[in-house]
Write a protein that binds this DNA or RNA. Structure first.
Lengths: 222, 222
DNA sequence: TATCGAGTAATTGTATACAATTATACGTTC
DNA sequence: GAACGTATAATTGTATACAATTACTCGATA
């Protein structure tokens, strides 16, 4: 079912290429590699103790993800994500998360509803305790569950990639208690809409959930 | 500006990896490779007279595009696009093309408006002459121009990939004179909305333009 | 006959070698 | 001293070699 997805996240860890891929990706998303920095195959290979071959394959994949831009015969450079890109991604997500929630009304299973409910329950607990790392993790889980409940591998894939892209920003916004609380409340509302199969409402709430996040980001001046 | 985009489309033709990438991609999208077919590195390399190295890189990229699914230590298999996938893509596009047209109202330049107008003018000519290959090509150009006019490299990239995915279907639908004519008329309306900077109208028209296409596809039973 | 297993072939994963291209250093020329 | 050009080094592109894993063949056994 979601085999293809699992592959990217899990199996990759057991191949050199996958490890290199994650290493560079995290490096870019975390800001360890800076904008326009040249990524030399030999250097990265030496860093991780592998040859150029898996490094090259990882770079080619990252190019397709848009995090690296490759100039033939010249080199690979960090593309990075600008503030505008992040804003664009959130706006795009606001539409697609709405669509995703709508589709989830038609495809979600009882097991998935239970899983989502559990995640929300845990979120409330960790939010009240101020365990923000767990809150971020649970926020991811919530959204991934909705993605897989929409019944479209295409939409699931798109949203997963975008979700990962903005991980750094999510960590910041969700570390504010006020936003974390409100976010969890919004999650609950979305779940209820999906559970009652109210497509219009689910789409509207999921859409607005992302819009709220954008407003929060702008308030922080990120 | 749109360097990254050009790279994927143009420069790739001048490297073995790029040629292999396009070869396999077209093979999958055109149906030459069938669903679940195993893509062996040696076989494809021999087909194109290259070694395994560029083939491997191309396969890894295609995995990320979702057209190929790779099972570690086992092989690469054609994922293909199901009818449902195509329907999903069009629905996703209906939202994103709307957003794109909205953003284009704010970012389009006079040169771009002129270029779009020219494409539409040519489309009308070739539609009336029944030159359907040119019509398909011009339809691509129209959409790509809008994509690049939206001022978001993220959205431009997403829509470009989706647009390419459904190329086979587009070729069929646009080969019907009635749909081709109506499509061109809709393009004109979208252009006018963008030119007059009417965001709401542009988004609505672009959205509906894709919805019409979906209806057409369903009517044909594709 | 069906099933299991050892051995072999085929295929992928990684490293290395070589070719082609690009960047750099440095001396020459004006 | 600045600009140019050539030689050298560094880097990427591709092919090949070797290792590891998986698939297959085929005979032995129940």
């Amino acid at each position: 079912m979601s085999d293809a997805k699992l592959q990217n996240d899990k199996d990759d860890k057991y191949s050199l290429r996958g490890r290199v891929f994650n290493h560079i990706r995290e490096g870019i998303l975390s800001g360890r590699y800076e904008e326009n920095e040249e990524l030399k195959e030999n250097t990265i290979g030496a860093e991780l103790g592998v040859s150029r071959t898996p490094v090259r394959e990882a770079l080619r994949q990252l190019e397709l993800e848009g995090l690296v831009s490759i100039i033939p015969n010249k080199g690979a450079y960090v593309t990075g994500i600008s503030e505008k890109d992040i804003h664009d991604i959130y706006t795009i997500r606001s539409y697609l998360e709405g669509l995703c929630a709508r589709w989830a009304c038609e495809h979600v299973t009882d097991e998935q509803l239970d899983a989502i409910e559990e995640v929300i329950y845990l979120s409330e607990f960790h939010t009240s305790k101020g365990h923000f790392e767990q809150v971020v993790e649970l926020d991811s889980k919530f959204h991934k569950l909705i993605y897989s409940a929409c019944g479209s591998k295409i939409l699931e894939h798109e949203l997963s990639v975008f979700h990962h892209y903005v991980e750094r920003v999510r960590k910041i916004t969700l570390s504010m208690e006020e936003r974390a609380k409100r976010s969890t409340a919004e999650h609950t509302a979305i779940l209820n809409a999906i559970r009652s199969r109210d497509k219009e409402l689910a789409e509207k709430l999921a859409h607005e959930h992302i819009i709220r996040t954008i407003e929060n980001i702008e308030k922080l001046g990120l």
